[in-house]
Design a protein around this nucleic acid. Sequence first.
DNA 1: ATATCTGCAAAGACTTTGCATGAGA
DNA 2: TCTCATGCAAAGTCTTTGCAGATAT
Lengths: 154, 154
Amino acid sequence: MPWKDGTGPPWLQGKFKGCGYRLTVPRQAILDVLNSTTEHLSAEDTYLKVHKVHPAIGLTTVYRTLELLVQTGMVFKFDFGDGRARYELSEGPKGIGHHHHLVCTGCGRIIDYTDFIDEEVELLKRTEKGLSKKYNFKITNHMIQFHGLCEKCQ
Amino acid sequence: MPWKDGTGPPWLQGKFKGCGYRLTVPRQAILDVLNSTTEHLSAEDTYLKVHKVHPAIGLTTVYRTLELLVQTGMVFKFDFGDGRARYELSEGPKGIGHHHHLVCTGCGRIIDYTDFIDEEVELLKRTEKGLSKKYNFKITNHMIQFHGLCEKCQ
DNA sequence: ATATCTGCAAAGACTTTGCATGAGA
DNA sequence: TCTCATGCAAAGTCTTTGCAGATAT
């Protein structure tokens, strides 16, 4: 969703205003929270953190803003199987990040791993190209998760 | 969950009785439905199909049975981002299958792809081994999804 | 016989929507 | 000014739970 009217260049850098969206206090606060954590926050987690600084901001606004961020590609939405969605900024200071996860089915702990990423990314690129062609899909994203038991839960 | 008391060998072949679970009509009906489709059924989808043959079977039982099948490893549970869980038999006639998906974010269509699987599986095995060691995780499963727009939705 | 399983209804958890008020450009 | 954004409350979805009756072994 580059522009809210459906036209224009893709939105890549979190420039709310460049896409015609208003940069409000709640939206900045939510971005700040996402930008200052390495956790995978749920909507409520985000709300609680925002709430500490801006008690007037409501959970509804958090949901709406997160959804907006997802639609614009600034944030990735994940589901780790615990019934609530998790959100993570799609890019760090170094540009678009990869979001490969190790999920503990015992305690729900989530580890972002970056090992082996290079090899994975290379293969994914090839696979993506092949799949795009074969199924005529325009692929925008991928997700890799490994599920298992962490040290404590084994 | 090999045995309901937590001991014994892993449950691999759908042998309900071998694990101490009762093989009832609803459970057989649900397995039949899962076994006769290539779709990714939600709990309600499953319920509707079961309901055609056995109108007395309730949605609650479908949820409970699917959860049981997931716990025993007979069925994989997926989330494709549309707010409802999807279920797929973990193994076909040829043994454990791989479940890599192409998800259309426009219409929700899901494609199981098997192209490039060999290369992917090989890389996944290596990655899995590396991650297991580094993070001391006992990895039991993996999930790969590509998200994008299908032919119609572009 | 008896521990499991089932169906219904109700409750629970997460998320979305309606609407009047408030705020950014 | 005039849309767009917000907050509250209510509603919507999917899923789980409590409990009495039914069933498999």
